[in-house]
Design a binder for these strands. Structure first.
Lengths: 249, 249
DNA sequence: CGTTCTCTTGACTCATCTCAAATCTGGTGG
DNA sequence: CCACCAGATTTGAGATGAGTCAAGAGAACG
């Protein structure tokens, strides 16, 4: 209904939405989708644009439809830690909370299916299928956050890099249905700086460890953003997890 | 109903339960409590006992009633990271998941109000007040986990120690309604090793940083487990957060 | 009063950070 | 097409914070 002039986007019906089966609305039936349709609007954010400021009023609630956004938080002197990566279908915002605990920043062009605040809060109270889906998604995120805590607290720089590459490689493999022993190639959707913020390292250490993994033959680079992994199992070994634990699910 | 012989405990009615107003059952009405009463039983765990093993079948679902438990995960070579601390009223377990992602270990004598698995899964589907409370609790835990990621990834050893002490001090102050400029004294409920596992440090570094904070006059020790904080604001400064952000809520 | 566990402290090592410079990349305008 | 520039990345050299190894001091317990 209300569509901001600057950031408007083609309207999509929920029925044709690309993230429909995974987003917060995944368990909704047709009539519930109609209710959602009434309170949603699409907003587009430019690369680098801050969608939510930590400490400010949390006004944005919705589903990420397209693009990648980062969740992060900084110390007063500028040290920054990413605490989450948001992909299409991930939920942004929190019901019943006024102050945003973290920054949300668009890394590339991002489209959000944004719900109007009071209406959404109301809707979720009367729609168990919404609430259940949100609970499942939140629990999954909690598990990944805790997994990441293990990485941040206990892994070496080399293991951190290997873990991150393994996660991205696995997502790529899942899409192409390749076997672990085949090679995988993918494009890094992150700059060295974003990787550093994610892993709790400096840019220089990230760069050095990538070079070291290249020298060991664990990976090879076409250019700085295109990684080739000849043996996925080898990469997993470098990540330090049990070969069947952690990141395999 | 079913009470294990070895670990039995005095039965409590939900109405007289000490954690009633904060636990997963907080939003339940009287009739819903009756349903819970029918599928719950109390179990006691000894200090050091592992309540749930990571990677094993997740059979325990319930509320921590008494004691403190830790959530942690280890790398194959033994490096361990705590990913959560469970206090009375915290929820243990996860609906609809077979494999436990983390170890749950009792640090002292722990009592759990344990629900029978299939019945609880069923109950939560038909009881919105349970589901809503669980969603709120899970979101709070997700926020704290992410807060902790900032600590693990970006804080120095001294800041990590100060942050942990600040959290415990604040909880103590909240109970006694003391003002920040007053002195606070409390007993550490954790060993140096548990603190190290929590903060992503070694025992020796924990010990050294506590000594350093003592030498700076930020804290003083009666003995190794009894901390006195003469000026809470000073402690917060050492924690590195914005003085009004982060751990104040 | 040993025994055992927790905690502290010292000396040294090493991984990661810091500071600095070089290289590479893509884009812009002439 | 080329020169130039700004941003991203790599690499080097040195500093340092935290880990490792080892020993000693308390405290708790039987």
């Amino acid at each position: 209904m209300t569509v901001t002039a600057a950031n408007s986007e083609v309207l999509i019906r929920c029925g044709e939405c690309p993230i429909r089966v995974q987003a917060v609305c995944a368990y909704c039936g047709p009539s519930e989708l109609v209710s959602l349709d009434e309170i949603k609007s699409y907003k587009t954010y430019k690369p680098g644009e801050t969608i939510v400021w930590a400490g400010e009023n949390l006004t944005v609630i919705g589903s990420l439809v397209k693009g990648i956004a980062t969740l992060s938080r900084s110390l007063p002197d500028g040290r920054r830690q990413m605490v989450g990566l948001l992909f299409p279908s991930d939920f942004i915002g929190r019901t019943g909370k006024r102050v945003a605990p973290f920054d949300v920043v668009a890394t590339n062009e991002v489209v959000i299916c944004q719900f109007r605040q009071p209406q959404f809060d109301q809707l979720i109270k009367t729609t168990p299928s919404l609430e259940r889906r949100l609970l499942d998604m939140t629990m999954d995120e909690l598990d990944s956050a805790r997994e990441w805590m293990l990485l941040l607290g206990r892994k070496t720089a080399r293991e951190k890099i290997a873990s991150l590459l393994a996660i991205i490689a696995r997502r790529t493999m899942a899409l192409s249905a390749a076997s672990p022993r085949d090679g995988v190639a993918f494009e890094l959707p992150l700059t060295r700086e974003t990787m550093a913020d994610y892993l709790g390292l400096t840019i220089e250490t990230v760069s050095r460890q990538i070079s070291a993994l290249k020298k060991s033959g664990v990976i090879s680079l076409r250019d700085s953003r295109h990684i080739v992994v000849p043996d996925f199992i080898r990469l997993l070994d470098e990540a330090g997890d049990d070969s069947d634990g952690g990141f395999i699910d």
